[in-house]
């Protein structure tokens, strides 16, 4: 096969928060820069730009990802959710509400990344994934309870220079409880599809 043509740009289509965006990109463009500089989706923040701070966290195919190390061209065809796509219209997601209710931020710069990361944490925990602080990782041991220690470990990829960690841990724990309650509620009245259960 002949070597690939050395075009350094491509026209790509990104699927973001349920919308399609077609744009030409220099291959060097990260997903983070495409979101902020090209698509006016500035909720996602640039902190370190080298994968260490988590401010740029988004969900790619449902999994939390640092968008600063994700090339935009390689994200084509994937379902991307940014903080702008987390709420249902004017109704905040329970994770967002918990950050507000429990002061899970001070300056707010890391918060979009914290919220997207927390969404990932709740999904990963619900799927039974262990963490580095889970004492027994064998599947027979069952899923670990989402203790503050587990939350701190699972959220360790998101730095907060204001040091709002104590409140962030409380907010993630509260969001997990409300998700559990919603799941229980939905389980006990599974024929009644109310709006609360969607949360």
């Amino acid at each position: 096969m002949a070597p690939a043509p050395l075009s350094t740009h491509s026209a790509i289509t990104l699927h973001i928060n349920g919308e399609k965006y077609t744009l030409p990109v220099d291959h060097r463009t990260t997903l983070l820069d495409a979101l902020r500089e090209r698509l006016d989706l500035t909720g996602t923040k640039k902190g370190c730009d080298q994968g260490q701070c988590g401010a740029c966290t988004v969900l790619v195919d449902g999994r939390r990802t640092v968008s600063c190390l994700q090339l935009a061209v390689a994200a084509e065809g994937r379902e991307i959710t940014t903080v702008e796509g987390v709420a249902e219209g004017d109704e905040l997601h329970p994770v967002q509400q918990a950050f507000l209710d429990l002061d899970g931020f001070q300056c707010g710069y890391c918060t979009p990344g914290q919220i997207c990361s927390a969404l990932g944490v709740l999904e990963e925990h619900a799927a039974g994934w262990p963490s580095a602080v889970t004492d027994d990782v064998r599947p027979e041991a069952g899923p670990p309870p989402l203790t503050p220690e587990e939350i701190r470990e699972r959220m360790s990829g998101n730095l907060c220079r204001c040091g709002a960690y104590v409140s962030i841990v409380r907010a993630v724990a509260a969001a997990a409880e409300s998700a559990d309650a919603a799941a229980q509620d939905s389980h006990s009245h599974d024929s009644h599809d109310t709006k609360e259960q969607v949360a």
Binding site: T65, V66, G120, W129, P130, S131
Partner: peptide, 29 residues
């Protein structure tokens, strides 16, 4: 890799090693 039941059952140190590295975001990538 770290979430797979057979890895966690047969080679738990492998699951633990992977979980000890990087962050949740980076492990997803």
């Amino acid at each position: 890799l770290a979430a797979h039941p057979d890895v966690r059952r047969r080679y738990p140190a492998l699951a633990q090693a992977v979980l000890a590295g990087a962050s949740g975001q980076l492990r997803n990538m």
